[in-house]
């Protein structure tokens, strides 16, 4: 019994050091050396490519309906995956209906992934079809030709990984960045603090240059 106790305590300490410190810290060193961009959160200047933001109205391409239920915790930290409605939940009917009607009023066909919430609630992507149904509305808002936007979507489509894994999809942040780059003067970019809108447009285009650099480092195939 005493021997068992002694061995248990000692082995807990050994595993704590081996699996709890050495293993994750070597992993962190590898991540920070070879995969700096990914290991730190796939961050570009506007946000993380892996975290959805809310894009409202036909001014932008809109993402999943996650923003409506996303919650934040201590220090405003985003809490993922808090909402999981059952398949026969009345609340789910209500939220889908609200969202679908809003989209219809903007002239957008309510696609499946545009009206539903994801499991993580920070799903940064939408299907290609969900991006394409938004083209008429977005084109009308910005007085752009629809073909230009279809091309933009095609350029920003991430194909199935290795040609067969998962879905092909469009990252909403990337698509909207490309949109802002396409015709920045016509986009109503909100004012930031004390800078006037001209400055923030300048800032946005500088951001785009920075962003292009980062795209080279991306490994998502």
């Amino acid at each position: 019994m005493i021997a068992n106790l002694k061995r248990s305590i000692l082995s807990c300490i050994i595993f704590l050091i081996l699996c709890g410190l050495i293993y994750p810290l070597i992993g962190t060193a590898i991540g920070q050396t070879f995969f700096k961009f990914q290991a730190n959160g796939s961050q570009i200047k506007q946000g993380s490519l892996l975290v959805e933001q809310s894009w409202n109205g036909p001014e932008w391409f809109q993402g999943r309906n996650d923003g409506s239920v996303l919650t934040v915790g201590k220090d405003n930290i985003i809490i993922s995956g808090t909402n999981q409605p059952g398949p026969r939940s009345k609340a789910l009917i209500k939220s889908v209906k609200q969202r679908a009607e809003k989209l219809l009023s903007e002239g957008i066909l309510p696609k499946n992934d545009l009206v539903t919430t994801s499991g993580s609630l920070i799903d940064p992507d939408i299907t290609v079809a969900a991006a394409e149904v938004q083209v008429p509305a977005v084109a009308k808002f910005h007085h752009l030709k629809q073909e230009v936007l279809y091309k933009l979507i095609a350029q920003n489509t991430v194909q199935k990984q290795f040609g067969f894994l998962g879905n092909s999809y469009v990252n909403v942040l990337e698509l909207n960045l490309a949109l802002s780059k396409l015709n920045p003067t016509k986009l109503d970019i909100p004012k930031v603090n004390n800078t006037n809108s001209g400055n923030s447009i300048l800032k946005a285009s500088r951001v785009n240059k920075h962003y292009q650099k980062i795209q080279v480092n991306k490994t998502r195939t």
């Binding site: 962190t28 590898i30 990914q38 290991a39 796939s42 809310s54 934040v72 970019i189 946005a204």
Partner: peptide
């Protein structure tokens, strides 16, 4: 990690998007 999973000991990151005026505090970790 190569595919995009986090592996860092720096705390959460705060990002601000000038395009849609969104600010987010994104949790990170190993």
């Amino acid at each position: 990690v190569a595919q995009g999973a986090l592996q860092t000991l720096s705390g959460p990151m705060t990002v601000h998007d000038v395009l849609n005026n969104t600010t987010q505090v994104i949790p990170r970790g190993p």
